[in-house]
Protein backbone atom coordinates (compact mmCIF):
# COMPACT_ATOMS: atom_id res chain seq x y z
CA UNK A 1 0.00 0.00 0.00
CA UNK A 2 1.49 3.34 -0.98
CA UNK A 3 1.39 5.73 1.98
CA UNK A 4 -0.38 9.03 1.36
CA UNK A 5 0.42 10.27 4.84
CA UNK A 6 3.37 9.05 6.88
CA UNK A 7 3.95 10.25 10.42
CA UNK A 8 7.31 9.21 11.78
CA UNK A 9 8.30 9.76 15.39
CA UNK A 10 6.22 12.92 15.59
CA UNK A 11 6.84 14.91 18.76
CA UNK A 12 4.98 18.12 19.54
CA UNK A 13 5.52 20.44 22.48
CA UNK A 14 3.07 23.23 23.27
CA UNK A 15 3.85 26.36 25.20
CA UNK A 16 1.88 26.33 28.43
CA UNK A 17 2.51 29.37 30.57
CA UNK A 18 6.25 29.83 30.30
CA UNK A 19 7.31 26.24 29.77
CA UNK A 20 7.08 23.73 26.95
CA UNK A 21 4.84 20.75 27.54
CA UNK A 22 4.87 17.66 25.31
CA UNK A 23 1.51 16.60 23.87
CA UNK A 24 2.76 14.09 21.32
CA UNK A 25 5.76 11.92 22.12
CA UNK A 26 6.71 9.80 19.15
CA UNK A 27 3.57 9.24 17.08
CA UNK A 28 4.09 6.97 14.09
CA UNK A 29 1.23 6.30 11.68
CA UNK A 30 0.55 5.66 8.02
CA UNK A 31 -2.55 6.38 5.99
CA UNK A 32 -2.78 4.90 2.53
CA UNK A 33 -4.56 6.43 -0.46
CA UNK A 34 -8.28 5.94 -0.08
CA UNK A 35 -7.80 4.33 3.29
CA UNK A 36 -9.79 5.27 6.40
CA UNK A 37 -7.84 5.17 9.63
CA UNK A 38 -9.55 5.59 12.97
CA UNK A 39 -7.77 7.27 15.84
CA UNK A 40 -9.33 6.50 19.20
CA UNK A 41 -8.42 7.31 22.77
CA UNK A 42 -9.55 9.28 25.79
CA UNK A 43 -9.60 13.08 25.95
CA UNK A 44 -6.12 14.55 26.12
CA UNK A 45 -4.46 11.52 24.56
CA UNK A 46 -3.28 13.58 21.57
CA UNK A 47 -5.79 12.58 18.87
CA UNK A 48 -6.74 16.10 17.90
CA UNK A 49 -3.15 17.29 18.11
CA UNK A 50 -2.17 14.59 15.62
CA UNK A 51 -4.77 15.87 13.14
CA UNK A 52 -3.79 19.46 13.80
CA UNK A 53 -0.15 18.64 13.21
CA UNK A 54 -1.03 17.15 9.84
CA UNK A 55 -3.08 20.25 8.93
CA UNK A 56 -0.35 22.49 10.36
CA UNK A 57 -2.89 24.10 12.68
CA UNK A 58 -0.93 23.96 15.91
CA UNK A 59 -1.11 26.90 18.30
CA UNK A 60 1.56 29.56 18.05
CA UNK A 61 4.84 28.66 19.70
CA UNK A 62 4.41 24.90 19.22
CA UNK A 63 7.59 22.92 18.64
CA UNK A 64 7.48 20.01 16.20
CA UNK A 65 10.10 17.28 15.81
CA UNK A 66 9.99 14.15 13.69
CA UNK A 67 8.45 14.04 10.26
CA UNK A 68 5.10 14.27 8.52
CA UNK A 69 5.19 13.31 4.86
CA UNK A 70 2.28 13.84 2.51
CA UNK A 71 2.56 12.19 -0.88
CA UNK A 72 6.32 12.11 -0.39
CA UNK A 73 6.67 15.79 0.59
CA UNK A 74 7.85 16.82 4.05
CA UNK A 75 5.01 18.87 5.50
CA UNK A 76 6.59 20.23 8.68
CA UNK A 77 8.89 22.61 6.82
CA UNK A 78 6.36 23.98 4.29
CA UNK A 79 5.89 27.72 4.21
CA UNK A 80 3.88 30.40 2.43
CA UNK A 81 2.42 29.46 -0.93
CA UNK A 82 3.65 25.85 -0.70
CA UNK A 83 1.89 25.45 2.65
CA UNK A 84 -1.32 26.87 1.24
CA UNK A 85 -1.07 24.63 -1.84
CA UNK A 86 -0.65 21.65 0.48
CA UNK A 87 -3.60 22.68 2.62
CA UNK A 88 -5.82 22.65 -0.46
CA UNK A 89 -5.11 18.92 -0.83
CA UNK A 90 -6.45 18.19 2.63
CA UNK A 91 -9.73 19.16 4.24
CA UNK A 92 -10.81 19.20 7.81
CA UNK A 93 -14.21 18.62 9.39
CA UNK A 94 -14.27 19.96 12.93
CA UNK A 95 -16.14 18.85 16.00
CA UNK A 96 -18.18 22.01 16.56
CA UNK A 97 -19.50 23.46 13.30
CA UNK A 98 -21.09 26.38 15.16
CA UNK A 99 -17.67 27.64 16.24
CA UNK A 100 -15.84 26.72 13.07
CA UNK A 101 -18.05 28.58 10.61
CA UNK A 102 -17.76 32.37 10.58
CA UNK A 103 -21.09 33.56 12.06
CA UNK A 104 -21.24 36.83 10.14
CA UNK A 105 -20.66 35.43 6.65
CA UNK A 106 -23.31 33.68 4.59
CA UNK A 107 -23.32 29.94 3.95
CA UNK A 108 -22.62 30.72 0.30
CA UNK A 109 -19.54 32.70 1.25
CA UNK A 110 -18.36 29.90 3.47
CA UNK A 111 -18.82 27.23 0.82
CA UNK A 112 -17.33 29.09 -2.12
CA UNK A 113 -14.53 31.00 -0.44
CA UNK A 114 -11.83 28.46 -1.14
CA UNK A 115 -12.82 27.86 -4.79
CA UNK A 116 -13.04 31.55 -5.54
CA UNK A 117 -9.91 32.60 -3.68
CA UNK A 118 -7.54 29.77 -4.40
CA UNK A 119 -8.69 28.45 -7.72
CA UNK A 120 -10.14 31.57 -9.27
CA UNK A 121 -13.49 29.92 -9.98
CA UNK A 122 -16.06 32.63 -10.85
CA UNK A 123 -18.74 33.18 -8.22
CA UNK A 124 -21.63 31.86 -10.31
CA UNK A 125 -19.77 28.65 -11.14
CA UNK A 126 -18.63 28.18 -7.54
CA UNK A 127 -22.19 28.65 -6.32
CA UNK A 128 -23.50 26.15 -8.85
CA UNK A 129 -21.04 23.56 -7.59
CA UNK A 130 -21.88 24.41 -3.98
CA UNK A 131 -25.61 23.92 -4.62
CA UNK A 132 -24.86 20.58 -6.26
CA UNK A 133 -22.87 19.40 -3.28
CA UNK A 134 -25.45 20.64 -0.80
CA UNK A 135 -27.88 18.37 -2.61
CA UNK A 136 -25.41 15.49 -2.31
CA UNK A 137 -25.09 15.97 1.47
CA UNK A 138 -28.86 15.97 1.76
CA UNK A 139 -29.67 19.68 1.81
CA UNK A 140 -32.22 20.49 -0.88
CA UNK A 141 -33.04 24.03 -1.94
CA UNK A 142 -29.35 24.95 -1.92
CA UNK A 143 -29.85 28.28 -3.67
CA UNK A 144 -31.83 29.53 -0.69
CA UNK A 145 -29.37 28.06 1.82
CA UNK A 146 -26.49 29.95 0.23
CA UNK A 147 -28.17 33.22 1.24
CA UNK A 148 -28.69 32.10 4.83
CA UNK A 149 -26.41 32.64 7.80
CA UNK A 150 -25.02 29.99 10.15
CA UNK A 151 -27.33 30.97 13.03
CA UNK A 152 -30.33 30.13 10.85
CA UNK A 153 -29.23 26.49 10.48
CA UNK A 154 -29.37 23.65 12.99
CA UNK A 155 -26.17 21.99 14.18
CA UNK A 156 -26.78 18.92 12.04
CA UNK A 157 -27.40 20.99 8.89
CA UNK A 158 -24.34 23.08 9.62
CA UNK A 159 -22.19 19.98 9.91
CA UNK A 160 -23.51 18.82 6.55
CA UNK A 161 -22.51 22.21 5.17
CA UNK A 162 -19.06 21.72 6.68
CA UNK A 163 -18.79 18.30 5.01
CA UNK A 164 -19.93 19.77 1.70
CA UNK A 165 -17.32 22.49 2.01
CA UNK A 166 -14.65 19.91 2.75
CA UNK A 167 -15.57 17.90 -0.35
CA UNK A 168 -15.97 20.95 -2.59
CA UNK A 169 -12.24 21.48 -2.92
CA UNK A 170 -11.77 17.82 -3.96
CA UNK A 171 -9.13 16.99 -1.39
CA UNK A 172 -7.13 13.77 -1.15
CA UNK A 173 -7.25 13.51 2.62
CA UNK A 174 -10.08 14.25 5.01
CA UNK A 175 -9.27 14.98 8.64
CA UNK A 176 -12.46 14.39 10.61
CA UNK A 177 -12.08 15.46 14.24
CA UNK A 178 -15.02 14.00 16.15
CA UNK A 179 -17.40 15.25 13.46
CA UNK A 180 -20.56 14.00 15.19
CA UNK A 181 -19.81 14.57 18.88
CA UNK A 182 -21.49 17.97 19.06
CA UNK A 183 -24.67 16.77 17.33
CA UNK A 184 -27.94 15.26 18.58
CA UNK A 185 -27.88 11.51 18.86
CA UNK A 186 -30.46 11.18 16.08
CA UNK A 187 -28.50 13.29 13.63
CA UNK A 188 -25.20 11.67 14.58
CA UNK A 189 -25.81 8.47 12.69
CA UNK A 190 -27.20 10.28 9.63
CA UNK A 191 -24.16 12.53 9.37
CA UNK A 192 -21.80 9.63 9.96
CA UNK A 193 -23.43 7.47 7.30
CA UNK A 194 -23.26 10.36 4.87
CA UNK A 195 -19.58 10.98 5.56
CA UNK A 196 -18.76 7.31 5.17
CA UNK A 197 -20.65 6.95 1.90
CA UNK A 198 -19.22 10.07 0.30
CA UNK A 199 -15.70 9.16 1.31
CA UNK A 200 -15.95 5.71 -0.25
CA UNK A 201 -17.53 7.04 -3.45
CA UNK A 202 -14.75 9.54 -3.92
CA UNK A 203 -11.89 7.33 -2.81
CA UNK A 204 -10.82 9.80 -0.16
CA UNK A 205 -8.33 8.93 2.51
CA UNK A 206 -9.56 9.80 5.99
CA UNK A 207 -8.19 10.18 9.45
CA UNK A 208 -11.22 9.71 11.66
CA UNK A 209 -10.88 10.85 15.23
CA UNK A 210 -13.34 9.57 17.80
CA UNK A 211 -13.54 8.17 21.28
CA UNK A 212 -16.10 5.66 20.06
CA UNK A 213 -14.33 2.36 19.29
CA UNK A 214 -17.41 0.88 17.72
CA UNK A 215 -17.95 3.81 15.38
CA UNK A 216 -14.32 3.66 14.31
CA UNK A 217 -14.74 -0.04 13.65
CA UNK A 218 -17.78 0.60 11.49
CA UNK A 219 -16.31 3.21 9.15
CA UNK A 220 -12.55 2.59 9.19
CA UNK A 221 -10.20 0.08 7.61
CA UNK A 222 -7.66 0.28 10.39
CA UNK A 223 -7.80 1.74 13.87
CA UNK A 224 -5.00 3.21 15.94
CA UNK A 225 -5.37 3.63 19.69
CA UNK A 226 -3.67 6.58 21.39
CA UNK A 227 -2.60 6.93 24.98
CA UNK A 228 -0.56 9.73 26.54
CA UNK A 229 0.61 11.18 23.23
CA UNK A 230 1.62 7.86 21.70
CA UNK A 231 0.00 5.24 19.53
CA UNK A 232 -0.16 2.10 21.64
CA UNK A 233 -1.82 -0.25 19.21
CA UNK A 234 -2.78 -0.32 15.59
CA UNK A 235 -4.49 -2.99 13.51
CA UNK A 236 -7.48 -3.82 11.34
CA UNK A 237 -10.54 -2.13 12.79
CA UNK A 238 -12.67 -5.25 13.32
CA UNK A 239 -9.88 -7.26 14.93
CA UNK A 240 -9.62 -4.75 17.75
CA UNK A 241 -12.51 -6.33 19.64
CA UNK A 242 -11.73 -9.92 19.21
CA UNK A 243 -7.98 -9.74 19.37
CA UNK A 244 -6.72 -6.62 21.17
CA UNK A 245 -2.94 -6.41 21.20
CA UNK A 246 -2.50 -3.93 24.06
CA UNK A 247 -4.00 -4.06 27.55
CA UNK A 248 -5.28 -0.48 27.16
CA UNK A 249 -7.31 -1.42 24.08
CA UNK A 250 -8.67 -4.43 25.89
CA UNK A 251 -9.68 -2.17 28.79
CA UNK A 252 -11.40 0.23 26.38
CA UNK A 253 -13.31 -2.63 24.80
CA UNK A 254 -14.38 -3.85 28.22
CA UNK A 255 -15.41 -0.38 29.37
CA UNK A 256 -17.69 -0.01 26.39
CA UNK A 257 -21.38 -0.38 27.29
CA UNK A 258 -22.79 -3.43 25.56
CA UNK A 259 -26.49 -4.10 25.26
CA UNK A 260 -25.96 -7.85 25.03
CA UNK A 261 -23.65 -8.07 28.00
CA UNK A 262 -25.07 -9.62 31.11
CA UNK A 263 -22.41 -8.10 33.31
CA UNK A 264 -23.96 -6.31 36.25
CA UNK A 265 -21.74 -3.29 35.89
CA UNK A 266 -19.41 -1.77 33.39
CA UNK A 267 -15.75 -2.38 33.82
CA UNK A 268 -14.18 0.98 34.44
CA UNK A 269 -10.48 1.50 33.88
CA UNK A 270 -8.93 2.25 37.28
CA UNK A 271 -7.02 5.49 37.69
CA UNK A 272 -7.20 8.49 35.36
CA UNK A 273 -5.78 8.94 31.86
CA UNK A 274 -2.34 10.50 31.69
CA UNK A 275 -1.28 13.28 29.35
CA UNK A 276 1.97 13.05 27.46
CA UNK A 277 3.75 15.47 29.78
CA UNK A 278 2.97 13.33 32.82
CA UNK A 279 4.23 10.14 31.25
CA UNK A 280 6.65 8.16 33.46
CA UNK A 281 9.96 6.79 32.14
CA UNK A 282 8.46 3.36 31.57
CA UNK A 283 5.18 2.36 29.93
CA UNK A 284 2.68 5.22 30.25
CA UNK A 285 -0.17 2.82 31.01
CA UNK A 286 1.77 0.78 33.58
CA UNK A 287 0.13 2.17 36.72
CA UNK A 288 -3.38 1.42 35.42
CA UNK A 289 -2.53 -1.89 33.79
CA UNK A 290 -3.57 -5.15 35.46
CA UNK A 291 -0.67 -6.93 33.70
CA UNK A 292 2.15 -4.58 34.60
CA UNK A 293 5.41 -6.04 35.87
CA UNK A 294 8.46 -4.38 37.36
CA UNK A 295 10.12 -3.87 33.99
CA UNK A 296 7.00 -2.02 32.71
CA UNK A 297 7.76 0.75 35.20
CA UNK A 298 11.32 1.28 34.00
CA UNK A 299 11.50 0.22 30.36
CA UNK A 300 9.73 2.29 27.70
CA UNK A 301 8.21 -0.08 25.14
CA UNK A 302 8.50 0.61 21.41
CA UNK A 303 5.70 0.12 18.86
CA UNK A 304 6.49 -3.43 17.66
CA UNK A 305 4.78 -5.30 14.85
CA UNK A 306 2.74 -8.23 16.07
CA UNK A 307 0.34 -10.39 14.10
CA UNK A 308 -1.36 -8.11 11.49
CA UNK A 309 -0.88 -4.97 13.56
CA UNK A 310 1.49 -3.48 16.07
CA UNK A 311 1.52 -2.90 19.83
CA UNK A 312 3.49 -0.84 22.29
CA UNK A 313 3.46 -3.41 25.09
CA UNK A 314 6.45 -5.32 26.45
CA UNK A 315 4.28 -8.36 27.12
CA UNK A 316 2.26 -8.21 23.92
CA UNK A 317 3.41 -11.61 22.65
CA UNK A 318 2.78 -13.52 25.87
CA UNK A 319 -0.55 -11.82 26.60
CA UNK A 320 -1.90 -12.29 23.09
CA UNK A 321 -5.27 -14.00 23.12
CA UNK A 322 -5.68 -13.66 26.90
CA UNK A 323 -6.30 -9.91 27.01
CA UNK A 324 -9.80 -9.96 25.67
CA UNK A 325 -10.98 -12.49 28.24
CA UNK A 326 -9.14 -11.39 31.32
CA UNK A 327 -9.63 -7.66 31.41
CA UNK A 328 -13.34 -7.78 31.99
CA UNK A 329 -12.80 -9.91 35.08
CA UNK A 330 -10.34 -7.53 36.69
Amino acid sequence: MSGLVELDGLEVDLRVGGSMRPVLSGTTLQIGRGEAVGLVGESGSGKSMTARSIARLLPEGAEVRGSIRFDGTEVTSLRGADLRAYRRRIAMVFQDPRAHVNPVRSIGDFLTEELRTNEGVPRAEAERRAIELLDVVGIPDGARRLRQYPHELSGGLLQRVMIASALLSEPELLLADEPTTALDVTTQSDVMALLDELRRERGLAMLFITHDLELAGAVCDRTAVMYAGQIVEEQAADALYTDPLHPYTAALVAARPDIDATAARLAAIPGRPLSAFEAPPGCAFADRCPFSEDRCESERPALMPIAAGSSRCLRAEELRGRLHLTVSDV
Binding site: A55, L57, L83, R84, A85, Y86, R87, R88, I90, A91, M92, F94, D96, A99, H100, V101, N102, P103, E113, E114, T117, N118, S169
Partner: peptide, 14 residues
Protein backbone atom coordinates in the same frame (compact mmCIF):
# COMPACT_ATOMS: atom_id res chain seq x y z
CA UNK B 1 -8.11 33.03 18.38
CA UNK B 2 -11.53 32.02 17.04
CA UNK B 3 -12.06 28.56 15.60
CA UNK B 4 -13.56 29.83 12.37
CA UNK B 5 -10.31 31.64 11.67
CA UNK B 6 -8.58 28.26 11.90
CA UNK B 7 -11.09 26.84 9.45
CA UNK B 8 -10.18 29.54 6.95
CA UNK B 9 -6.47 28.96 7.54
CA UNK B 10 -6.90 25.21 7.15
CA UNK B 11 -8.37 25.79 3.69
CA UNK B 12 -5.23 27.47 2.47
CA UNK B 13 -6.68 30.98 2.31
CA UNK B 14 -3.78 33.49 2.28
Amino acid sequence: RREHVQTATSRGIP
